[in-house]
Amino acid sequence: MSDLKAQIQGIRDAFNQALGQVEGLKGLEELRNHYLGRKRGIIKDLLTDLRSAPKELRPELGQAVNRLKQAVEAGLSEKLEALKSNVSSSKEDGIDLTLPGIAPELGSLHPLNIVNRDLIRIFERMGYEVAGASEIETDFYNFEALGLTKDHPARDMQDTFYVSDEVVLRTHTSNVQIHLMQEKKPPFKAIMPGRVYRKDADITHSPMFHQVEGLVVGEDITFTDLKGTLEHFLKKLFGSDTKMRLRPSYFPFTEPSAEVDVTCIMCGGKGCRVCKNSGWLEILGAGMVDPVVFQNVGYDPETVSGFAFGLGVERVAMLKYGISDIRMFFDNDLRFLSQFN
């Protein structure tokens, strides 16, 4: 039995020596087969020899063989790691591929453009067309036609840049809704992305920002259609676990109107600093198109109905990327822009 023990020690010494001399992955593989091969491996042979050892010694010898096997496996895999991490550069004419890579230079789109395209793509897949119009707009298209008469208190809600008494920088992309309805007959589904302007500047307000509005008009368009559409959209935008909450609200050009919240994307609705512990984030405004708006474009509100919604691209981008200061978007610092490619 001491023979067998001595033999095991001899195998271990031979293995260690051979391991030290191995060069390259191929040599290592040969070594592995030599010791651990299933048919002719040295350790396999040892196990066979073990069967002829006295019964009472077998457990002890078995353990010794096992320890040898573990040592061989450990030695092989350590050597493998060492060889892998030092492949070609170890050769005289080798290339050190751990040097920095050199890619062709690449710029990127502005994060607002990325989000804007995401929004458009979601509605595009739902069969919406994309519409546009002037940013420098008449009072009629920006206000009057939407039911915002000159003395309407809601005009206070939107501090407006004026070019003249009758011409403004549009305060929303709703002017496109009016142009569209004047040009088209229902039914249709459309979205309207674009730049809008309000006289407001602080950490969450920019005098210029971007909106995407949507408008669906037809014979049987209902509030539940609005709900289903927004639910689909918000799940596509923020993920399928997103929940939506509607709160009745007031906009002059929709009725019934709603503010739409989504479960906070930071905390998943548990409550955090971003959602002021409410679990909800306000994300868009929506409602059924007010009959006054239909009358103003020559549609019959008794036969057609429709819904409209609008959201701020900056708001979505701020939530999505975790940006807390809206001015970041318009500073265009390259250290900011280069994070989105």
């Binding site: 669906v216 049987d220 539940t224």
Partner: peptide, 20 residues
């Protein structure tokens, strides 16, 4: 209650979108 109402999708067939 807005949140009690069901969700549906509008039955408007649209030719889809043409990029301007």
């Amino acid at each position: 209650g807005y949140n009690r109402m069901p969700s549906t999708l509008p039955g408007v067939e649209s030719p889809g979108r043409e990029t301007s």
